[in-house]
Structures are given as structure tokens and as C-alpha cells.
Design a binder for these strands. Structure first.
Lengths: 255, 255
DNA sequence: GACTGTGAAGACTTTCACAGCA
DNA sequence: TGCTGTGAAAGTCTTCACAGTC
């Protein structure tokens, strides 16, 4: 099974597990805060607490990077900040473009967290001619027509898509064709990309839906004190339901 | 993907794995699109493609909900929309408050994806007195002083935090004290909450950092064609590095 | 014949618990 | 003594592959 992988092949991360990679930014944030308070060293226990994970996990994560701690003492804060930054590729400058300057795109353009982590917003792009030239976050919005030129002139390899869902795939295709190989997608749609291009998505409503799921559980559990198969509601219960083409089930949702 | 929850052992989700729950909104979105095109049934293969997962995973996921398909045919779109909505708790109305009406908070307030999924923005709250009364997304911003009253008057159990990092924990504490049991956190900080409260976080810069990590790998791999232990760079390689209190390593990062 | 539902295998992730070093 | 680094165990998630059903 050489190349023909379906979609997300875990991207051969030179031994560092994906789950660990996803936590490195968390550690980095906690470490940066310590660094700003001039704390010289930190134990796995303390750092784990600051990052919101447990210490065994943190130590295991760090063990994939190397042996950067000192037994009996802990980790040198500055040194670890450097190592993690390097591992994440943050010691270099990453120009990014944001496409789709609506409410969300504008908020992203104004978001300080990017610049402070080695990301530089190289351009803001929107399809609306009326937006062109208007300043957002101190930077003139450019028109989609120039997308390809902007990408190549600035050597951009990371693109952020904040367009409506309908436009996202098209924008994505153009970004990829122009040389972008990493995409952060805020549009509520699935993007199809060729092999070698990474996509990460952030969907605001999905997060709320997951919360709602657990919230519903909590409410249900209040009544059923025992931990059984708490089928508190008279609703359809698991496998036993057989659907009919009609039945008592509402056929449509509140769209 | 942004995960949440401070620690807690998987919140007793009545058998449905957390990973499955996290994908239900994805399926729901794909199904809703099919429904709008009046597609009556769909196979696991088709739906999986539309949701960006593979079909085995999708079938396994659905098997946790019940036997809702028909062998040889596929799934009834409307029926599945209903079942998933119910499972996620979207057949009821969830009032939410957004605290922190800066760029991001305002973007969230304007975001259409909430309302269409059973979430109703009940109030916008900000600490800045100058914001109070100003309309955002057709709704007057209210002052933090009234937070507790707003929560209880509206029966809010889900809160969205979009404040600066420094204010987030305090806002969180007040939300929780007022009765909120689910929190979606956009502030780049770890929130501490009591047992029984769920937190999910979305951190924009973390997603970019993960992309940067993979981006850096891609750049590195270009040189090393063979798939060996591609230690292409002359940099520190795994466990063999021994740190000194100085050495050739820069001690400080570009903050 | 087509497609779902699911045990079983495999991969990945977390946690435990302790040896080993400063 | 105090704390890291890590094998091994436990737990979770994904994938396979095929029996079962329409």
C-alpha cells in the first residue's frame, strides 16, 4: 500500500504521533507564559497542569522529541520553548492568506494569535469587488482575480478559507493549483484535495452540537439515578426500532 | 479538530464512543444537503464520501445508534436526519450566550450556522460599558453585570467565551456559578471547571501550528527521496541530543 | 446482486508504574 | 530524594472482511 491512500494517512510524521503533535502548541503556550514570568524550570506535573493534560501524557509526548528534561529537576523553560518551536516549524516565518473577508475572515485578520506564533498574514482576498481596496486590519483587501499572483509573489504555502460553503471548494482548488499545500478551512463543507495537501477544519457549529449531545445526556441522567440503560424518554430506543415509511416519526426537521 | 474537556473519563455517553459523537454533526450536514436536494436514500459509500470519511467507519458509527439502514438499499435520508438530530439533542432549542463581543464574538453572533441547528443566541454580553446597548447582529449587547440574571432568565446551559485570555477563567466561573454546564471556549487559555461541566475549545492558532508542523515535514522530505529514517537535517536527532546550559542553541524565541 | 451490520484484527493512544539518573 | 523517561498494560478507535438481509 504505497501511495494510494484514501484520505488522511497520518502524514508520516517522522515518528511523532499525531496526537502528540496536536498537543505541542498547548505546551508551547503554557511554556511561553512561564517564560514571560521568567520561571526558569518547570516539572512535568506543573507544566501538565498549566496545559490541561496529565503529567504522564506530557512526559510521554516529550519523550518523542528527545530527552530534554533533567531528572530530579524538571525542564528548562527557555530550552523547551525553543525545541518545541523548532519541532513545530515556528522558527521560520509562514506567510498565510485569508480568503473570504466576511465577519469571520475579518475577525481572523484581526486575531493577534497568528502573528505572535510566526504566522504573517500576507494578504486578504475577497471575491466582492466592493471590498477591494478597503482596509481590514490595516491591510487592503485584494480581489480574487489576483489570487494566483498573490500566492506566488509571497511564497504562500498556507491558506485560510473563510468563504461561504458554496465558494470554498473552488477557492481551495485555486489555492492548491497556485501552490498552497496546507489549508485551514472554516467553511462548513468537506474539501477535496490532492495527495500531499493537508486540510484541517474548524466548524463552529459542530463543536456546539457535540456539547449539546452531552448536555442532553446530563439532563436525561438527572431522572435515572441508576446507571442502567437510561431510556428515560418514550422515544425510539436503540436497535429495537423498525422503521416504516411513515409511522409516528416526524419526517422533517426544523431545517 | 479541537477537543475539550479538562480530564474526566469520557463522560458516560451511553455507549456511543466519543469519536462517533464528534462525527455525527458531519453526517448530519451531509444528510441535510441531500435532503434539500430531495434525495430519498443514500448508501454508506455515497454518504461517507459526502461527509469525508470512509464507509466502514460510517457504518460502524451508525451501528451504535441502531439499525437504521436497509440492506441492499441504503439509508432513508429523512429518517436518518431525524435520528441523528435526536441523538445530538438538536430537536430541542438550545439558548446560548456569547460573552466577549470583540471581532470574534461579533462574527460568532452573525454566524448563521448556529440558528440553523437549533441553537439560539439568547444574549450577547460584554464587559465594556461602551458596548452596552450597541446592536450587534440585530441584538443589543448587554453588560457583564447582568450575566447571572441573563443566564437564569433565559435558561441558558451553553455558553460561548470569546473574551481575551485574561478574562476567560473569571467569565467561566461566573457562567458555571450561574448554571451553565457546557462551555465553548475561544480564548487561548486552559479553563478549569468543576466536575459535570463540559468544555470544548477552539484555538485558531493551534490549528495553524499543526499545519506548520506538517508543512515543514513536506519541505524536508523533498530532499530525502527514500523512505528510510530520513534524518535529512543536520539538526538534533531524537534521543541522542544532550543539552548543555548553553551550547549552540539560541536561548530565546521570537516571543 | 447490492449493501448493511458487526465480530475480530490491527493501529493508535493513554495510563501505569517503576527503573534510572541528577 | 525528586522527577524524568519508558516499557508494558489497558483502553479506544479504525479497518477488514464477510455473514446476513432485502
Amino acid at each position: 500500500m504505497a501511495t494510494g491512500r484514501t484520505h488522511r494517512p497520518a502524514t508520516r510524521s517522522r515518528g511523532i504521533p499525531e496526537a502528540t503533535v496536536a498537543r505541542l502548541p498547548l505546551y508551547l503556550r503554557a511554556l511561553t507564559a512561564l517564560s514571560e514570568r521568567s520561571v526558569p524550570t518547570v516539572s512535568s506535573e506543573e507544566l501538565a497542569a498549566a496545559a490541561g493534560v496529565n503529567s504522564a501524557k506530557l512526559r510521554k509526548d516529550f519523550s518523542y522529541l528527545g530527552s530534554y528534561g533533567t531528572r530530579g529537576v524538571g525542564y528548562d523553560v527557555e530550552y523547551l520553548v525553543y525545541q518545541i518551536s523548532r519541532e513545530l516549524g515556528l522558527t521560520q516565518d509562514w506567510p498565510v492568506v485569508i480568503v473570504g473577508i466576511g465577519n469571520l475572515g475579518a475577525a481572523l485578520a484581526n486575531y493577534g494569535g497568528f502573528a505572535s506564533r510566526g504566522f504573517r498574514v500576507a494578504a486578504l482576498i475577497d471575491a466582492d469587488p466592493a471590498m477591494a481596496g478597503k482596509p481590514v486590519a490595516g491591510m487592503p483587501v485584494q480581489h480574487t482575480d489576483d489570487l494566483e499572483k498573490i500566492i506566488s509573489d509571497n511564497g504562500v504555502s498556507i491558506g485560510v478559507i473563510a468563504t461561504p460553503a458554496g465558494a470554498a471548494q473552488q477557492v481551495c482548488d485555486r489555492l492548491v493549483a497556485a501552490g498552497v499545500t496546507s489549508i485551514l478551512n472554516f467553511a462548513p463543507t468537506v474539501l477535496t484535495v490532492p495527495d500531499g495537501v493537508d486540510v484541517r477544519k474548524v466548524d463552529l457549529s459542530i463543536e456546539l452540537q457535540i456539547l449539546a449531545f452531552h448536555e442532553q445526556r446530563k439532563a436525561g441522567e438527572e431522572s435515572a439515578a441508576d446507571d442502567g440503560d437510561g431510556a428515560a424518554e418514550p422515544a425510539v430506543t436503540k436497535a429495537q426500532h423498525r422503521k416504516g415509511p411513515d409511522g409516528d416519526v416526524p419526517a422533517v426537521m426544523p431545517a
